[in-house]
Amino acid sequence: MSDESRLLFDIPGPRATRRTRIATGVALLALTCLLALVVRQFAIRGQLDADQWSMYTQWPILRYLLEGVGQTLLVTAVAATLTFPLGAAVALLRLSRSRMLRAVARGYTELFRAVPLLLLLYVFLFGLPRAGLTFPVFWQLVIPIVLSNAAVVCELLRAGVLAQDRGQGEAAQSLGMTYWQSMRWVILPQAVLRLVPALVSQLVRLLKDSTLGYTVSFLELLHRTRVLGEYYHTVLSSYLVAAACYVLISAALSRTADRLEQRQRQ
């Protein structure tokens, strides 16, 4: 156990270790029994029959789902392309020496961190069209995701910059750099380097937010799964297949974050 961990709690003794192992074993046994009960209920109700799963061997069904995966990845990629630059720009405004710019940036972050994403989607779906401002379905989904997640990225970057040693900026300014030059060439690159795993993990949130496409009738993966399950009366198997797709994509993104973190440590 590292020294940092010892500062958080004491090292458990033999009795506490034994109790922890017993509690872990009991919890795993209870979870296994619960999972077996759920599988048994699915089998009793016919949810595990072959006809509930044979449809996924047909190419038209697979193509329909793969198109949904493609739409989900497209929303995630476009949202990420817009979210990270916008979050960085707002973070720089929050770090500005101008009180007015800091107030504007703080108002943005506080607003879009507090407002639920679903409410933003309803604003773009119902509110703005009544004011005469209508967006295509794709952008009705992407723009609220960008506005909401950019506020989170802003706080991540701001925290990363503030965590840097003040001597970095002072050394840069002593070489003749201005405040913004030292921020651009010295402080911000180091902060981004340390935050790469967290920023990559933010992609997982963008992926999850894309599942709200049903609110604007955008046919991403989850919406297509819902349509497919209701049409063929295979709701459970359809959702399980969709969940497996999301797990695989999220695992790939998480694996990327782990590799970047390991490379950073090296």
Rank of each mutant, 00 (worst) to 15 (best):
M1V: 10
L8E: 12
F9T: 13
F9G: 00
I11K: 13
I11D: 14
A16F: 05
T17P: 03
T20D: 14
A23E: 10
T24D: 12
L29F: 10
L29E: 03
L29C: 13
L31Y: 07
T32G: 15
V39M: 10
R40G: 09
Q41E: 13
F42I: 04
A43W: 09
I44D: 11
G46Q: 04
Q52A: 08
Y56W: 10
Q58F: 10
W59Y: 08
L62D: 06
L65Q: 00
V69R: 03
G70R: 09
Q71R: 13
L73V: 12
V75Q: 07
A80W: 08
A80N: 02
T81L: 15
T81E: 01
F84G: 00
P85T: 02
P85W: 02
L86H: 06
V90E: 02
V90T: 03
A91W: 05
L92K: 04
L92S: 08
L93C: 12
L93Y: 00
L95C: 01
S96E: 08
R97V: 00
R97K: 13
R97D: 13
M100Y: 14
R102A: 10
R106G: 11
G107M: 06
Y108D: 01
L111Y: 06
F112G: 02
L117S: 02
L118I: 15
L119D: 04
L119G: 05
L120H: 07
L120G: 09
L121H: 00
V123N: 00
F126Y: 15
F126W: 09
F126V: 13
R130E: 15
R130M: 14
R130F: 13
R130A: 14
A131W: 15
A131F: 14
L133Y: 14
P136K: 01
V137M: 08
V137F: 07
Q140A: 05
I143H: 06
P144N: 06
P144V: 07
L147G: 07
N149M: 14
N149R: 02
A151G: 10
V152C: 10
A159P: 08
V161G: 00
V161Q: 05
L162V: 12
L162F: 06
D165Y: 08
R166I: 12
R166H: 11
G167C: 07
G169C: 01
G169L: 13
A171E: 06
A172R: 06
S174P: 03
G176S: 02
G176H: 05
W185M: 09
W185Y: 15
L188R: 00
A191W: 10
V192P: 01
R194Q: 14
V196T: 12
P197D: 05
P197V: 01
V200T: 14
V200K: 01
R205P: 04
L206R: 04
D209F: 04
S210A: 14
T211D: 00
G213Y: 03
S217E: 09
L221I: 03
T225K: 01
T225A: 14
V227Y: 12
E230D: 13
Y231G: 01
Y232Q: 11
Y232C: 02
S237Q: 07
A244W: 04
A244I: 11
V247D: 00
L248D: 08
L248K: 05
L248F: 12
S250V: 11
A252T: 11
A252G: 13
A257H: 04
A257N: 04
D258N: 13
L260N: 03
E261Q: 14
Q266P: 09
